[in-house]
Nucleic acid binder design. Sequence first.
DNA 1: CGGCCACTATTCACTGAGTGAATAGAGGTC
DNA 2: GACCTCTATTCACTCAGTGAATAGTGGCCG
Lengths: 178, 178
Amino acid sequence: MSTSHVLLGLLAGGPRHGYELKRSHDDRLPQAKPLAFGQVYATLGRLERDGLVEQSGQDRDGGPDRTSYVITEAGRARLGEWLTEVEPPAPYVTSALFAKVVVSLLASGERVATEYLVAQRAAHTTRLRELTAVKTDSAATVGDVIAADYAIAHLDADLRWLQTTLLRLADLNEEMNP
Amino acid sequence: MSTSHVLLGLLAGGPRHGYELKRSHDDRLPQAKPLAFGQVYATLGRLERDGLVEQSGQDRDGGPDRTSYVITEAGRARLGEWLTEVEPPAPYVTSALFAKVVVSLLASGERVATEYLVAQRAAHTTRLRELTAVKTDSAATVGDVIAADYAIAHLDADLRWLQTTLLRLADLNEEMNP
DNA sequence: CGGCCACTATTCACTGAGTGAATAGAGGTC
DNA sequence: GACCTCTATTCACTCAGTGAATAGTGGCCG
């Protein structure tokens, strides 16, 4: 998704090689999923192909050769666009929770769907408590708090949805399996 | 992601061929992203390879040949698992909004990040109003309402996050660019 | 001194998700 | 009979992501 933009953003701070990019990614965005090395080099390859970065020479410093990349003018332009564009609020509902409820009603009936909703609500509630604890942890950085906030807000959104969907499940079943 | 499970779910209602699956998917989950044909056949291929579905013969009915698939016992078992498993609340924060704010601070500074947050808030607010209208539309089905609810809950979560992040942006900037 | 381990750095082979265009049969229509 | 439309499948391709393999260098320990 936006991995390439994130790499461009890291490269905006100066030339870097792949290994370094992986580490500064995991470092700067510790609450995001760690990047795999393979993915870093593959993405760099695409960025280079598209003229958004360039190799800025090889060097070596007590270890194997390494290839540094710099961001190009086109790269800066692309990064600038991404940073100012708003993310289009998704036109589609792509949620495993939603899909599961619908498929459940189609394939197994209302009882299974209800059980699922109840179980999912319990799991979310547990996770919500854990995240709340992270937030009040005194060792938490501002970044940690903001990330936790994001997760909390969405867990809470799911929970409210799970609740109202439970209440409407009989109606939905009626509509789908008349 | 869960496309294969959704297809299994549709096949649980009886044998279907690819074209039919695409249509009943788009029909049953109208608020989800339409499936591309290519994806249906590719997914069916994987399901067959894994023994979760089987070809149940060819037939023809005023048109080209078509190949029907049935769900196998293993397929039903797999579907049953999926329907009862809770979705693990994501351990990582994989959000374009979050990533953009962090990268923005790294690469362009607080002003650009602020402008982004404000613009994104406006876009979300607009979309939220549209969705609220969908909900009160008298033609809305229960499915539509539940889907709109999902989207609304998450837009609202984003909005609250955007708001609190705006307030904390100076602190975050301080932490990241000391 | 030789062997091994840890760290740095990159590559490779593979799977899965998804897109868009191409192909092809059958029936209807003007 | 040329063409259009609907049904049905396939193909070629890109991107994202994983896990293992490869390879160079320095440090440490027996």
